[in-house]
Design a binder for these strands. Structure first.
Lengths: 99, 99
DNA sequence: CATCTATATAGATTTTTGTCTATATAAGTA
DNA sequence: TACTTATATAGACAAAAATCTATATAGATG
């Protein structure tokens, strides 16, 4: 889980996900919205893809990206378990007050 | 938001939050569950506190920690907006296909 | 085929961050 | 007061990560 969070925790990548949240965009559309270079965008998209947070299709020489909403939902669901009560979790194995 | 996520994205801190999800624990209880040193734990707790993800009270010479569930809920709520439709978001300002 | 556009890769560099050791502080206890 | 336990701080160091420039590839188009 921390691996997914690390990918999302970068402000540029989070903004990319936000931009994609309304629908498909190509890399060059995204690039125009950022200050960083094209190889940097390529690097971010690769990370997002490798971690299944986005999906890609080829359209001519363009890469069209969209959110993988299922994976993102799954991540937020798991994260919300932290603030919910009475779920199976590692904290049950803790011995309190042993120090 | 990415600041919060960066704090949570570390696997040690995520595990600390998980351990705290069942209730209050002192730093020394937590320390016994990890391989790293006491100063490292202290550093992690400081980060979690500075970002309001946990709350602390003093009990003698011990620090008692608990989750700040409100903040964590707020974070997961905002994150879940990514995978939901039709919310106000920066992607509406995008000009698609301008490249 | 030559060229342009869109994207990827390689490699270097800088920043960030997680960790350590050593030491300090602060509270409890004999 | 001396000592022990719990925690914090300072400073160093190493690993990870974000960025860049330069270059390569791949598809579209004249």
């Amino acid at each position: 889980m921390s691996q997914y969070l690390k990918v999302i925790a970068d402000s540029s990548r989070l903004e990319i996900l936000d931009l994609l949240s309304c629908g498909e965009l190509c890399a060059c559309d995204l690039l125009e919205h950022f200050e960083f270079s094209q190889p940097t965008l390529s690097h971010h998209m690769k990370l997002l893809r490798e971690n299944d947070l986005i999906l890609m299709r080829k359209d001519g020489n363009k890469n069209m990206y969209r959110l993988n909403k299922a994976v993102i939902e799954n991540l937020t669901d798991k994260l919300s378990l932290l603030s919910s009560e009475a779920v199976p979790c590692i904290c049950h194995d803790m011995d309190k007050g042993s120090c």
